[in-house]
Design a protein around this nucleic acid. Sequence first.
DNA 1: CATGAATTTCAGAAATTACTGAAATGGTCG
DNA 2: CGACCATTTCAGTAATTTCTGAAATTCATG
Lengths: 186, 186
Amino acid sequence: MVDMALSPLHQDFIWHFGEMGSRWGMNRTVGQIYALLFLSEEPLNAETITADLGISRSNTSMGLKELQAWNLVRMRHVQGDRRDYFTTPDDLWEIVRTLVAERRKREVDPTLTKLRELEMAGPQGDAYAEARIAELREMIEMMTQFHDEMNRLETERLVQLMTMGRKLGGLLDKGPRLNPFRRAAK
Amino acid sequence: MVDMALSPLHQDFIWHFGEMGSRWGMNRTVGQIYALLFLSEEPLNAETITADLGISRSNTSMGLKELQAWNLVRMRHVQGDRRDYFTTPDDLWEIVRTLVAERRKREVDPTLTKLRELEMAGPQGDAYAEARIAELREMIEMMTQFHDEMNRLETERLVQLMTMGRKLGGLLDKGPRLNPFRRAAK
DNA sequence: CATGAATTTCAGAAATTACTGAAATGGTCG
DNA sequence: CGACCATTTCAGTAATTTCTGAAATTCATG
């Protein structure tokens, strides 16, 4: 099937993911490669990807390398074929978990490390800035811990939890309020 | 206070946020401006920011404009001074809410729109791709609805919820399991 | 252990994004 | 109204990132 053009559906989806790729800390081609694999039932090899997207073979190679660094694609092998084949996981929840974990690793963890490092240096004479840094570190710690806990939940439970939505707030102890102000009306 | 150099603490923090800025969909200067404002107890004007960061006045103007588009900084005025002054909100939770909301707007909502649009076009003959798109749309819908619900909670409740961490899973009905497998040991 | 197909690496080219200085605009005050 | 200060806009330049083609590497196979 040489020169088989992509369907309009594929075109449109892949193009969109290309644009989004840049906003998600990858680049256009990486987004496109991902999109192509996402829509494909069978694993694809690098040559096919290169042809479908009309990019250079080396660009495909780098893109796949990056997607593997993100743990977003898997390499597989096909019986009697020397080439590497690639797929995305079937389970969307797994994909989301990976994406969140990787973004945290790149976008949050380094800051947590840096903030701790700054605090280790001890007071430098700017009480406000130091308090602000401490407060930020505490908040990030709380959120990452929460993320760790949620990550431990099986998918089924996580879905239950998310589906509960509004009811979650109601579960909480409504004892003495720490904050005396009511939430402002929207 | 002309040519007052930034303290090493400020330097380090600001430099780090500059690097992170690029990973968070802003650019280096935008991250630096934000960091500078974040650590400053008093509002700062554009001239001060320009001098502290050693960038051009026009770059400062553009950076502030972008931060305002993100709703991450506020403009204020100081008695008897014609210049605009800028601050970040004191409440870190408010900051996080804003950040999440803005990233969703830029990184998730457009994809939801696109997926719906693709589905509207009706079946195109690739059942697998169409199913994949529908499944993705459903997942994104579930997550954005959940986000909407969480956003409705007052901060105090949200903190309570996050602090509960592990216990949350236990709250759920443990009725008939849909998934017959136990979670694999770490 | 030589061959050749598949993949990766990498230096330079192309494309994109960020930044600057100069000019234009806006808005306050006498 | 007009002078002056603050801010924004924007065209050109600088810096960065992405992409390519050619060369190097890897590795299964005869």
